[in-house]
Amino acid sequence: MVLITLVIGAIAFFLAFMFTFKPVSRVIALLVSGIILIGSIVLMVANYQNHFGMEKETTTTSTEIYSASNSDTMPMMLYKQVGTSGKNNVYVYNLKSSQKTPNHTNADEYTTNKVTTTSSTTAKLQTKTTRWVWKSDFYKNLYLWSGMNNTIVKRVNNFELPKTWVTVSTTQAATLQKAMASMTTEQQTASKTAGTQYVNQAVTAAMTKNPTMSSSEQVAIAKEAQIEYSSQVLKQALASSK
């Protein structure tokens, strides 16, 4: 609506200036069209600079995420460092247990990322997004076609990760990949054997406490133990690479 009154005011002011010759009529026409023109400009500036007619609205979404490694037994959060503060780092994750193209956070001035550790066994991403929205339908119609609605103010991503998850930079991941590729057959066999022993010990300890444990429960404990072992190995590898 403001855009329409702006155009009408500008055309009316031009016509009044060019084609109105009687002094009284000229003054009245210029005054009325000038008020419409200037008023429209003031309203537009107030909206663009001070978000006049708008208010902030925050929405929160929460979704389960999966390891960027595409492996259930190697829970990993990847990130690419942007800047020096770490606030604008780009985090890489999956929304499915396995996917070709991973998801990632936005690298812009509005987005802040946080990583916290929880006692949960599942990883979650909670996103709080704050945007400018119209206060009412009146302002919505007043500033029709302005493109200001849903303008983002800030976005906060909070990654809630289990203790077994490891946060790895893309540089560290590349280093680890090279180290794994250079492992000898003996080293690979020793690692697999150690992992199997760790899992067996965990299952045996659990069955000692609960001899009537079902086979599905044993599988669940074995998977959890495998995740714990992979997490320990990954953390040790990261520590040794520093």
Rank of each mutant, 00 (worst) to 15 (best):
S231Y: 06
L176A: 09
K87L: 06
L125Y: 00
E64Y: 11
K242F: 05
S215K: 15
A206M: 06
Q226S: 10
A205V: 09
S191K: 15
T164N: 12
M207K: 13
V45W: 13
Q197A: 13
T185V: 14
K223I: 07
T175W: 05
Y79M: 05
E160A: 01
T118Y: 07
Y93H: 06
V199G: 04
I38G: 06
T193C: 06
K80Q: 12
Q49H: 12
N94V: 09
Y110L: 02
V45K: 14
F21E: 12
N89I: 06
M54C: 04
V45A: 06
A10C: 05
L142C: 12
Y48W: 15
H51D: 02
S215M: 13
M54F: 12
S191A: 15
Y66T: 00
S98Q: 05
T63R: 14
K87M: 02
A181E: 11
P75C: 06
V219P: 01
P75H: 09
S33R: 03
T105C: 03
M207C: 03
K235E: 06
T164K: 09
V203F: 05
V203Q: 04
S169K: 09
L95Q: 05
S67T: 10
A12I: 08
S215R: 15
E228P: 02
T189C: 10
M207P: 00
T129C: 00
I11N: 05
T122W: 10
T185L: 11
